[in-house]
């Protein structure tokens, strides 16, 4: 177990190095830098700009800057945001919890809707319910997230039932504790549904297919033969084994959530990692981009790792260490 963990973590290192080099290279190839805005303003003295250029070694080639950055990063210093004027680590601490919260809620929402729907669709295979849910799953997989987000914002604006964006209301700071939680929840409803919609469909299709696979297994026949009630066979015996693939699918689903959150966070003005990456890229806030992309990838890898561990825990037949 420990060896497995160690191997996975070690194999992540070259990947992360590669990604950071790639991002540095891409940003170096892109025209201009974060000082472009300052340079175009006549009231900012040239000495100041010169000073900034020296400080961030803008004149140096990208690989020199990369090595400097890497040295600092290994000591826990990811640099400063040129736009927000605070250390990148602080910025990430503000944004990551929001994105993690949204992703976790979306997966939770997806699982809690998809498992019952998938099981019912499998139990009542070829019924009207099965067909309708298959059609809806298709639709959910085909609708672009940002379009869904636009529809949600329009829905919120027209009905006034939900806020049209953000994570907190204006008066959030002055609310008592429980009202604050409620305020968060109120803001999270629409983004969670929008982001989780595609995953619901994904999970549901996997759930249904697996359930149908296991229904034909011998242990089901055995259970029926010894007189276990049909409901118990379906929802206890079969469900427990059929749920496994959902766990391993979660890693893949987390990846789509992270990608999708860039769009959803931008449309719904949600203060998460996706919005940060997009804005930082647009404004050439180099260190923020590198750190945020790396964080996204680390979250993804961690998610995959957790999925693998959970799978081994759920299903004792799976051995993580080969040989």
């Amino acid at each position: 177990m420990l060896a497995f963990l160690l191997r996975r973590i070690l194999s992540a290192i070259p990947l992360l190095l590669g990604i950071s080099v790639l991002v540095f290279l891409l940003l170096a190839v892109a025209p201009g830098d974060f000082l472009d805005v300052a340079r175009s303003q006549p009231d900012i003295p040239a000495e100041y700009i010169q000073q900034m250029e020296d400080k961030f070694a803008l004149g140096e080639p990208w690989y020199t800057r990369y090595v400097t950055w890497l040295g600092n990063a290994l000591q826990g210093d990811l640099g400063r945001s040129w736009i927000y004027k605070i250390p990148v680590t602080d910025l990430l601490w503000q944004r990551i919890p929001a994105t993690l919260l949204l992703s976790a809620l979306s997966i939770l929402f997806a699982l809690s809707v998809a498992i019952p729907l998938g099981v019912l669709a499998a139990v009542y295979k070829d019924s009207l319910f099965d067909r309708i849910s298959a059609l809806l799953a298709y639709a959910a997989l085909s609708v672009p997230e940002f379009f869904l987000a636009l529809l949600a914002v329009m829905f919120a604006a027209r009905t006034g039932w939900f806020p049209t964006g953000g994570l907190t209301s204006v008066e959030h700071e002055f609310l008592p504790f429980w009202a604050r939680i409620g305020d968060y929840a109120h803001h999270l409803v629409l983004p969670t549904i929008v982001l989780g919609m595609g995953s619901v469909a994904n999970y549901m299709r996997i759930m249904r297919a697996n359930f149908l696979d296991y229904v034909r297994e011998d242990f089901v026949t055995t259970a029926r033969a010894k007189g276990v009630p049909e409901g118990r066979v379906m929802f206890v015996h079969v469900l427990r084994v059929a749920i496994n693939p959902l766990v391993s699918a979660s890693g893949f689903i987390l990846a789509t959530l992270l990608s999708g959150s860039i769009l959803v966070e931008n449309v719904m003005n949600y203060p998460g990692l996706g919005q940060l990456i997009f804005q930082a890229l647009m404004r050439q806030d180099q260190f923020v981009v590198v750190a945020a992309v790396l964080m996204g990838c680390i979250m993804l890898m961690a998610g995959n790792l957790v999925a693998d561990l959970l799978l081994a825990w759920f299903d004792p037949r799976i051995r993580l260490e080969k040989n």
């Binding site: 990947l15 991002v23 891409l26 992309v293």
Partner: peptide
């Protein structure tokens, strides 16, 4: 292949776009 797949695709899309647009 693993490297390309490991990066969330939209991140890579946006970064490539930023770099190549010039």
């Amino acid at each position: 292949v693993e490297f390309v797949i490991a990066i969330p695709s939209l991140y890579l899309l946006i970064a490539l776009r930023g770099a190549l647009a010039e």
